[in-house]
Amino acid sequence: MKKYIIKRLISIIPMLLGISIISFGVIHLAPGSPVDSTTTLNPKVSFEAREKLIIQYGLDKPLHVQYLNWLRKLVTFDFGRSYSDGQKVINKIAVCIPITFLINILSISFMLLIAIPIGVTSAVKEGSFYDRFMTVFVFVGFAVPGFWLALMLMSFFGITLGWLPVQGITSLNFDNLSVCNKFFDIGKHLILPVFVSSIGSLAAMSRYMRSSMLEVLHKDYIKTARAKGLSESKVVYKHALKNAILPIITILGLSVPGLIGGSVIIESIFGIPGMGRLFFESVMGRDYPVIMAILVIGALLTLLGNILADISYSLADPRIRYEK
């Protein structure tokens, strides 16, 4: 097991190299330069100042030299400084990551909490009215555009009813609140973003859960369990559920890139200062160092998610061995 984990972790390195080369190429080969927004559009900036900026950012060097310079710094976790405000990229990201993580972890938990019972119950009652209703519900849930749902809920709960805040993660008077109220304040701000970001994967996951459960329920060992005279609930929740939940772990690992990508829209709509919004702003401002850093970190998280899924899969299912 240890050997396997080490091997997988080492395999991340060439993948990350490939990812960084593609990202670097895509961003830098595009026409236009990051100094345009501060120079060409501003008549007060002289040609010399523009040249100076280009040299300062190292944009005058050939592409492969720029890439190697970037890579050399990366080894020491130095992502450079942001073009827009001169802050260290790593500090900017460190502020944003916890917020995005919090929202994603909450929405994964919420999603599993709802999706697994839906999947299990519709598999047990296969073909019933409940099952058919849930099928339709799942297809609709899967098709709802997240940003549209976000706006509709915002306008209903936030503006029409005035129950929930619509922007940011804290109220204006946050600093004056007691610890307990601070907690509730953040919670209130997170209800809508968490709900919206989990709805798509909720639909997909309950579908996977249902089909996985159906497959298990037709296995011989379930017949054996029934033949032994076990109660139906014991058969379903002890024998079947344990086995049916295994594939879900893998799917959860694969859903990481979607969650990270989805945070762009959720965070832009709700004005949440997380990774997604930082990325969006950097893209708009052509802030190369920040864009590169977030692409690489996002890909790293994806790779780690996949490895974690494989490892937990093998821990959960003793038949799977990754030795050698």
Partner: peptide, 18 residues
């Protein structure tokens, strides 16, 4: 595999913006 590792929406945003 490499292409699948990108959070695709990030990649799309980056390409569209440039």
């Amino acid at each position: 595999d490499i292409m699948l590792c990108f959070p695709s929406f990030f990649l799309i945003l980056a390409v569209v913006a440039v």
